[in-house]
Nucleic acid binder design. Sequence first.
DNA 1: CTACCTGCAAAAGGTTTGCATAGCC
DNA 2: GGCTATGCAAACCTTTTGCAGGTAG
Lengths: 127, 127
Amino acid sequence: MEKYSKQREEVFNCIKESKNHLTAEEIYMKLKLKNPNISRGTVYRNLNLLVDKGLVNKISILEKPDKFDYVCNFHSHAICKICGEVFDFEVLLNDSMKNAIISQTELEDLSNQFIVYGICKNCKNKK
Amino acid sequence: MEKYSKQREEVFNCIKESKNHLTAEEIYMKLKLKNPNISRGTVYRNLNLLVDKGLVNKISILEKPDKFDYVCNFHSHAICKICGEVFDFEVLLNDSMKNAIISQTELEDLSNQFIVYGICKNCKNKK
DNA sequence: CTACCTGCAAAAGGTTTGCATAGCC
DNA sequence: GGCTATGCAAACCTTTTGCAGGTAG
């Protein structure tokens, strides 16, 4: 049985209240400001627990640490291949695309969220 | 200036000839059979070099090591969220989706390939 | 009281890097 | 001959884990 923990609540709130997507290290650093005793291990353990409960999304990013996202089924993710920043957008796979994918791959429980890579405005301007 | 290397050629051929998508470790193990002296460092260095030259795709997978793919612009990737296996399928983002994503995220050079997660037949049957 | 959760530190897994030597051009 | 690539091992970064003590129910 799962028990209440202040630290878990803080991890969840940190994600829920953040405008952008955070790495475990960024969450750890933010929480450390209020609670200097919190440990990285606890942050990682609670992140995984929240992901397992379906309250938080983990996003895998090329060459960069994972980021975490408050679960919301109404958006997909675009990732900058230079800086790794994640951008939300409200486009999902439609049924005909999903059906084509399922028939070609035989995958089940296919998400209607998807991931695309591009280059963000910021990184483009720096070049 | 870049020089010819037997090892680089072998890394590239290994990816090109493989039916499925391989991790760096799997590539290393395969090449080791023919050339027991090859080192992990060389495999990783050449993989990155081939990715930079645009000859090979690196795929980032939740909770699993990266996999490598012979570059081909005509397919996208579906990933099993249990075992991490990657499946190709021939569906790309259409222009109206791309335009919607670009206008919402301001990303540029958006790929028309995308990534979706699901559960593969194999993993589904095991449960 | 008894799980479960924490902090800490060590370990694990994947990948990169420094160095001396070998190989391409 | 000069410069790049290699093999090896050590280092690195991110994440997980074992342990002893703390805390919720």
